[in-house]
């Protein structure tokens, strides 16, 4: 049988990945947002998504969250964002885009070995607010900033 070394390696890595992914899934059963949930990422209004994520709990504005976003994004397909926080006991950081069909962009669950910092790139359908919601010690905190999305460079 001709089973080349290259082919073997490729198969070994692909199947290896599945095993590791499965293990990673098993290792985090206790975490709040460890599972990908259809509910969180279904289309709807921002308020509905926040309700589904946090079961209607109060979210307080916080100056302890810093958002690093452009004021004007020339390309809504790639909007860089950095979220950091000086809050204690941060469990998760959610990033939402107000007027996207699916408002929730991503939710990060952090262990104690991860600093309270996330950097990512978002798609934005139109000019609107970007919201970061941080869960820290059973409390919810948020910060928001508007980003103007200019399409075709015509100004906004």
């Amino acid at each position: 049988m001709t089973y080349s070394r290259r082919k073997f390696l490729r198969h070994a890595t692909t199947s290896g990945c599945y095993v590791i992914a499965a293990c990673a899934g098993l290792m985090t059963p206790g975490q709040v947002f460890a599972e990908w949930a259809e509910d969180y990422f279904s289309p709807g209004k921002l308020e509905q998504t926040l309700d589904r994520l946090f079961a209607g709990a109060d979210i307080a504005d916080s100056a302890a969250i810093s958002l690093n976003l452009p004021l004007i994004a020339e390309d809504g397909a790639v909007v860089p964002i950095k979220v950091s926080s000086t809050l204690n006991d941060v469990e998760s950081i959610a990033i939402l885009v107000e007027k996207n069909p699916v408002p929730l962009a991503a939710i990060f669950t952090l262990s104690e070995n991860a600093d309270h910092f996330v950097s990512a790139q978002l798609k934005m359908a139109e000019t609107c607010d970007v919201i970061a919601v941080i869960k820290a010690g059973d409390q919810l905190y948020s910060a928001r900033q508007q980003v103007k999305v200019t399409i075709g460079g015509c100004g906004g």
Partner: peptide
């Protein structure tokens, strides 16, 4: 596991 993330199509192409 140090951190995990759940996401969908609102993250840019070729995510960073």
């Amino acid at each position: 596991t140090v951190l995990s993330a759940q996401m969908a199509g609102s993250i840019s192409k070729n995510p960073y």
